[in-house]
Amino acid sequence: MEKFNDIYQRAVSRKGSEEMLQALLSNPLDDADIAKMHDDLWLEEFTRKVFQSGFYWSVINNKWAGFRDVFWDFSVEKLLMMPPDMLEQKASDERIVRNFKKVQTIPENAYMIHEVAEKHGSFSQFIADWPTDNIIGLWAYLKKHGARLGGNTGPYALRALGKDTFLLSRDVEAYLRAHELIDGGLQTKKSLQAAQDFFNELQQQSGYSLQALSQLVAYGVGDNRVGVATR
Rank of each mutant, 00 (worst) to 15 (best):
E77R: 14
K78M: 12
L79S: 04
P84R: 12
M86R: 14
L87Y: 09
E88Y: 04
Q89P: 08
A91Q: 11
D93C: 09
E94V: 10
R95H: 04
R98L: 05
N99P: 04
K102E: 08
Q104T: 13
Q104L: 14
T105R: 01
I106V: 05
P107F: 00
P107S: 02
N109H: 09
I113E: 11
H114Y: 15
V116L: 10
A117E: 04
S122G: 05
Q125H: 14
Q125R: 15
F126R: 02
D129I: 02
W130Y: 15
W130D: 03
N134P: 04
I135L: 10
I135F: 09
I136Q: 07
Y141V: 15
Y141P: 08
L142S: 07
G150W: 11
G151P: 11
G151C: 09
Y156F: 13
Y156T: 12
L161K: 05
G162P: 01
K163R: 06
K163H: 07
D164F: 01
T165F: 06
T165V: 14
F166Y: 13
S169K: 01
S169I: 01
D171P: 02
V172N: 03
E173C: 05
A174F: 00
A174E: 04
A178W: 00
H179M: 03
G184C: 05
T188G: 00
T188R: 04
T188Y: 07
T188K: 06
K189A: 14
K190V: 08
S191V: 11
S191H: 12
L192W: 05
Q196R: 10
Q196M: 07
Q196V: 04
F199P: 03
L202H: 13
Q205Y: 04
S206E: 01
Y208E: 10
